[in-house]
Structure formats: C-alpha cells, structure tokens
Amino acid sequence: MKKVILKSEKLCKSFANEGTQNHVLDNVDLEIYEGDFTVIMGSSGSGKSTLLYSLSGMDMPTSGKVFYGDSEITALSEKKMSDLRSKEFGFVFQQVHLVSNLSLMENVLVPGYMDKEKTTGEVKDRALELLETMNISEAKDRLPAQVSGGEAQRAAIARAVINEPGILFADEPTGALNRKNTVDVLNLLTKINNKGQSILMVTHDVRAALRGTRLIYLEDGKVCGEMELPPFDEKDMKNRETQVNAWLSSMHW
C-alpha cells in the first residue's frame, strides 16, 4: 500500500480575463504517492503547470484544498509555507531560475544554510557531493551566465534537493535544453528517484514522460486518465515507449 504524500480535493483555479472567468483547473481530486516519479502530461493550455504550482503552494487555488501529509497547505500562513518550501519541497523550473549573482555552489548553499539544524560544514559537504553527482563540481564557482543551460539546470536540481525534500516538483525541466542536456537531466532525476526521492514533474515531452512511474493526463483542467509504469530501465525503453504512446493516443494526445 503506497503512502499518499500530497493530495488535492476539488481543486479549482480560475483566471479573470476581460470580464470572463477562465477555469483552468476544474475540481481536481488527485493523490501523489511517496517514492513515485509522477508525470503530469497534457496538451498546451490543459492546466498542467497550474496544477503543479497549485499543488506545490507556489500559487493559491481559487477553491479546493491541498494537503501535504496531514497539513493543509492552502491554509498555511506565509511563514509556515516558507518553512515547508525550505524543508519539504524542492523546485526545478523550465527556465532554470538560478540567482544570477550567486555562483552555482552558492545557489545550492543558500537553501541549505536556511536549515538551522545543519552546520556550515555539513551544508558545504552535501552541496559538493550533489554537484559531483550532477557532474558539475568543476563549474561550481562559475556564475549562471558562465555555464551551459544543462549545467545550470543540474545546479538547479542540486539546489532543489539539498535539503532532502519530501517531494521534488519539476516544471518542464528539460523544456529549454538541447537533446544531450535533456538526457543528462532526465538521468539525474531518475537517479535520485531511484534513491527514494518523490518527484512530481510536468512535461509535454514523451521522452521525459518515459522516466515516470505514474503518468497522469490532464485535459481542460480535469484528470482524464492515468497509467502506472515500472521503474525506469533503459534496456526496456522501446517497450515502455510503445506503451506510453498507446496510452497517450487513447487520451487523444
């Protein structure tokens, strides 16, 4: 029996647009399980990014509730939400979003330093270890503008997991990368998921979706279907791709 780590109840999100309401999310009930690599897919404008940000507390839903464990994050104060982001949530963005005046190492260190229980030495060791895992330790003292998009995105992943979050949110993490960097980043995400890290990723890239263990399809702000997959194995890639494509076709992808 899988443990539910994140849950939404009747989640709605609407945007006002020239006097009319645009309902992006429509009563979404969803459960995300611990240890899963959950991938949300959908066509452009289906509301997948909005769902990710509403689930992660990055954006407030118009109505409905989101629970992380037992706590309802839609009712948390700003301070408690900040604590949650610092300790339990990790984020990877499509546009990387590293702080431009901090080196890669410093970008990773800053959220680590916010954890008062860890010493500076512990944070530094952990950051170095992550950068080595991400294969960017040589570029650690460079500024974001001085590294490639792939290196920057790997640093962003390191930053997201420095505090060993309960769940890692990733919004189209390979959307702005070239083919080689895309594979590197996906390999990394798979690697950390294999170590037990729960991941919730939004993508419209089938290659990225193949890394998931659970796929959810969103259409017009509603969950239309989902499928489960075994943990990713490169040797089984072809079979996995066929399965996912077939499922996506059934979803009118």
Partner: peptide, 15 residues
C-alpha cells in the same frame, strides 16, 4: 522581482 520569486521558492519569507 524574479530573484525574489526564486528566494521565495527556496523558502525565504517576505519579511
């Protein structure tokens, strides 16, 4: 503004 969004995503409070 974007940097503040990043910091907030890391867990920094407005204060």
């Amino acid at each position: 503004k974007q940097d503040y969004g990043i910091y907030k995503a890391m867990g920094f409070t407005s204060a």
